[in-house]
Design a protein around this nucleic acid. Structure first.
Lengths: 217, 217
DNA sequence: AAACTGCCAACTGTCGACAGTTGACACGTT
DNA sequence: AACGTGTCAACTGTCGACAGTTGGCAGTTT
C-alpha cells in the first residue's frame, strides 16, 4: 500500500525532520544538550544517521556544535536577534522588491487571501496566528521567484521561530503587523519596488523590536 | 610548544578543508562525482568523517547530494548564476549600507589600501588578481559588522568562486571593477548609505553579466 | 575549610563490516 | 536489429564496537 520506496526517506532524513520539529516546538528546550546515544535509541536508529541529522541541523543554525561536548540548542541574546534581523531585512526587502516587479496576478490574489483570512480571524476575536504570518511571508517569497533568496529566507525564518517567545500575545503588535502586510500587498500590486522595500524594512524593524522587548521581559 | 590540542582539528574538519580546496581550485572538476571509499583512502581516513565532510560541503552549496548515487560538484547554468547574484546583491547591498553608517576610520584605511594595491598592480601591467577583489569585498563586509550577513556573504562568494571561469582575463571589466570599488569607498567614506547600495548594485550587476557571457562563450 | 591532584564514568570521534539500492552489461526474445 | 529481461559489480546507507577526550567527584594536602 505505502509507495514502495520514494516515501521511504533515509533514516538520516527522517531524523532531521523529527529533530527539527522537536527543536522548533521547544520540546528540546534551548540550552539543553542532545545526547547521541540516548536520542538514537529513542528514534530506534544508529548513531551514524543521527550524527548526520545533528550536523545538518547545525548547518541550519538550529543547533550549535562544541567539539567533544556535543550539540546544544542555542539560546539567543538580544544582540543575536538584532544581527539576525539585519540578515532577514536584507533578504526580505530584496524579495519584496523582486515580488513587486515579477508578481503574477495569481500571486497577488494569494497575498490578498492570506491578508483577508488574517483579518477575519482577528475580528472573530481570535489572535493573529503565527501560522498566517509565516504563510504571508512565504507567499511573498514565492512571488519573488528567486530560489536562492527563498532558501535563505526559509532558514532565517526557522531561526526566528526558534527564538520567538510568545509573539502572538500582543494585540497592538498584531494589528500593526496586519496593517504592514496590507500596505505591502498594495505596494506590490502597484509594482512599486521601492515602496515595497521601505514597508518591509519598517515592518521587520517593528517585529525585531517587539521580539527583543518580549525577550528581555 | 604547539597548543596541546586546538591545532588538532577533527578528521572531519581536516577533510572539509582539503575537499573544499580541491573543489574550489577545480582539482575535482564540476560535474564529477566524489567516491567515498576512494577519497577516504586517499585522505587516509575512514568513511565516517569523510561523509561528514561531504555533507558539510553540500550544506555550503559546494556539492550536491543525490540519494544512493553520491555527491557531485555542481556545474551552473546561466539561470543559476543570475539567481545566485540576486542573493549576493541583496546581501552585499545591505552590507554596503551598513558599512557606510558603521565604518571606523581604520575600516576606511583598509578599504583604501586594497584599492590602492589593485591600482598599483594594474599599472604594473599585472592583471587585477581575483585575490584582491575578494579582499575588497571581505574588508567591506567586516566594516558592516553584521555577523550573520557576513557569514552568508562568505558562503555566496564561495559559490561564485566555484562558478567563475577566468574572469581575470578581461581588462575592460577589471578596470570597471576597480572604478566601482573606488566609488564604493568614497560613498562609504561619506557615510552615504543609499549611494553605497546603488553603486554596489551596479557593480554586481556588471560582474554578473560578465560572468554569464564568459560562461556561455 | 579551601584548593589541588588523580581517578572514573559518560560521551563523542573513529573505524571496519554488513545490507540494500542503482546503473550497466550481457543475454534472450520478437 | 530493436527491445525487454535478468544478473552483477560498485557504491551508498546503516550498524555495532573500540579509542580518545572531557568534566566531575573523591581523596589528599596545606
Amino acid at each position: 500500500m505505502t509507495p514502495p520506496v520514494p516515501l521511504h526517506l533515509s533514516l538520516a532524513g527522517q531524523a532531521v525532520d523529527v529533530l527539527r520539529e522537536q527543536v522548533l516546538t521547544g520540546e528540546i528546550p534551548p540550552g539543553s544538550r542532545v545526547n547521541e546515544v540516548e536520542v538514537a535509541q529513542k528514534l530506534g536508529i544508529s548513531r551514524g544517521p543521527l550524527r548526520e541529522a545533528i550536523r545538518h541541523l547545525a548547518s541550519e543554525g538550529l543547533l550549535t556544535l562544541v567539539p567533544h561536548r556535543g550539540a546544544f540548542v542555542p539560546d539567543a541574546s538580544p544582540e543575536d536577534v538584532r544581527a539576525l534581523f539585519e540578515l532577514r531585512t536584507a533578504l526580505e526587502c530584496a524579495a519584496a522588491e523582486l515580488a513587486a516587479s515579477r508578481r503574477t496576478d495569481v500571486d497577488l490574489v494569494r497575498l490578498q487571501d492570506v491578508c483577508a483570512e488574517s483579518r477575519r480571524n482577528y475580528k472573530a476575536g481570535q489572535p493573529f496566528p503565527y501560522r498566517l504570518d509565516l504563510a504571508f511571508h512565504q507567499t511573498l517569497i514565492e512571488a519573488a521567484r528567486s530560489p536562492y533568496i527563498a532558501e535563505q529566507v526559509r532558514l532565517v525564518q526557522q531561526r526566528v521561530v526558534l527564538l520567538r517567545s510568545a509573539l502572538d500575545d500582543d494585540p497592538p503588535h498584531q494589528h500593526a503587523s496586519m496593517d504592514d502586510h496590507d500596505e505591502l500587498v498594495r505596494a506590490i500590486a502597484d509594482g512599486d519596488a521601492a515602496r515595497a522595500a521601505t514597508v518591509m524594512r519598517r515592518h521587520l524593524s517593528r517585529v525585531c523590536a517587539q521580539m527583543i522587548t518580549s525577550l528581555t521581559h
